[in-house]
C-alpha cells in the first residue's frame, strides 16, 4: 500500500522535474534548431525542430563574417583572465594580512570591505567613466579591467577561508624560516585552492556575462567582449535574420556552457560557496 503510493509519488515527481527541465532547455533546443534553418523555413513558423534543409554552414558563415567572433571570444578570455589574476593577486595578500597578522587597520579594512560589497559597478560607473575619458583610456583593455582589479568580495571570501586555517600551520612555516610572502605563496595559496577555484568560477561567470561596463567604456569593436559584440552584431544585422543570429548566439554561448558542462560539479559548488558567503 505505502510502497505503491510511494512509487506513484515518485513518478509524479519525476514527471514534473522532466517537464520543467524541458521548459528550461527549450531556449537551447530552439537556438540549436533555428541556427540550422534557412530564412524561409524560419518564417514558415512551424514547430519542427529538425531543419528541413540543413543551413548550418550558411548561417555560421554569415555569423562569422559580419563580426569577428574570434576577436570577441579572445577579448572575453583576455579580459576575464586579466581581471581574475589581478583580483587574486591583490586580494590574497590583503586577506592574509587581515586574517593572520597583527594588523591594526584590519577592523577598518573590514568596514571598508563590507561597504564595498554594497557598491556595484553601476554605482561607480559615472565618475569612473568621466575619469577614464579625461585620461583617454576608453576603448582599451585597461578600461575594461581596471575597475574590477579590486574585488572586495574576493577579500571577504579569502578572509573567511584563511581564518579557518590553523595558526599552527603559519607558525610552523615561520619556524621553518619562510618570509611572510613565502608563507602566502607556499603555504596559504596551496591550502586555499577550493576558495580560489570557487572565486574563479564566480569571477569569470560575472565578467564574461557583464554587459553594462563594456557598453560604457567600449565603442570600438576591436575591444568588444562577447555580450557587447553580440549587441553590435544585432545592430548590424537589421533584425530578422534569425538563422544567422542564432548561429552567432550559439558560438558565443558555447564556451562558457561547455566549461560548465565539463566541470559542472565544481561550478555548482563554486557558485554555492560564493553565493552563500556573499
Amino acid at each position: 500500500m505505502s510502497a505503491h503510493s510511494l512509487s506513484l509519488g515518485r513518478i509524479l515527481r519525476f514527471a514534473i522535474l522532466t517537464l520543467g527541465a524541458l521548459i528550461f532547455l527549450a531556449p537551447y533546443i530552439f537556438m540549436i534548431s533555428t541556427a540550422g534553418k534557412a530564412q524561409s523555413e524560419i518564417f514558415s513558423s512551424s514547430l519542427t525542430l529538425i531543419p528541413e534543409q540543413w543551413s548550418y554552414v550558411e548561417n555560421f558563415t554569415k555569423a562569422l563574417s559580419r563580426v569577428s567572433m574570434l576577436t570577441l571570444l579572445l577579448n572575453g578570455v583576455i579580459v576575464c583572465a586579466m581581471i581574475f589574476v589581478v583580483q587574486v593577486v591583490v586580494a590574497i595578500p590583503c586577506a592574509y594580512a587581515m586574517a593572520k597578522l597583527k594588523f591594526r587597520a584590519a577592523r577598518l579594512m573590514m568596514v571598508l570591505v563590507m561597504l564595498g560589497l554594497l557598491v556595484p559597478i553601476h554605482a561607480t560607473a559615472l565618475p569612473l567613466y568621466v575619469a577614464f575619458d579625461r585620461l583617454a583610456v576608453l576603448n582599451s583593455y585597461t578600461a575594461l579591467v581596471a575597475p574590477f582589479s579590486i574585488s572586495v568580495f574576493a577579500i571577504f571570501l579569502f578572509l573567511q577561508f584563511f581564518r579557518a586555517l590553523p595558526d599552527d600551520l603559519i607558525q610552523a612555516a615561520r619556524l621553518d624560516g619562510m618570509s611572510e610572502i613565502g608563507i602566502v605563496a607556499r603555504v596559504v595559496v596551496p591550502n586555499a585552492w577550493p576558495a580560489i577555484t570557487a572565486f574563479a568560477i564566480f569571477s569569470v561567470v560575472a565578467h564574461w556575462n557583464d554587459l553594462f561596463w563594456p557598453l560604457v567604456v567600449v565603442s570600438n569593436q576591436d575591444y568588444a567582449t562577447p555580450p557587447l559584440g553580440l549587441l553590435f552584431f544585432r545592430a548590424a544585422e537589421a533584425g530578422d535574420d534569425y538563422g544567422a543570429l542564432m548561429a552567432a548566439t550559439l558560438i558565443i554561448t558555447l564556451p562558457l556552457v561547455a566549461a560548465f558542462l565539463i566541470a559542472q560539479k565544481r561550478f555548482v559548488e563554486g557558485i554555492t560557496m560564493t553565493g552563500l558567503k556573499g
Partner: peptide, 25 residues
C-alpha cells in the same frame, strides 16, 4: 545531478545571447 545541471544551465549562459534567443521565442 542531471536535473541540477539542466536548471542551472541558464546561470552559466551568456544572458545577452540567451535574451536574443528569447526574443525569437
Amino acid at each position: 545531478a542531471f536535473f541540477r545541471t539542466v536548471y542551472f544551465l541558464p546561470v552559466a549562459s551568456l544572458l545577452v545571447a540567451m535574451a536574443t534567443v528569447w526574443q525569437f521565442l
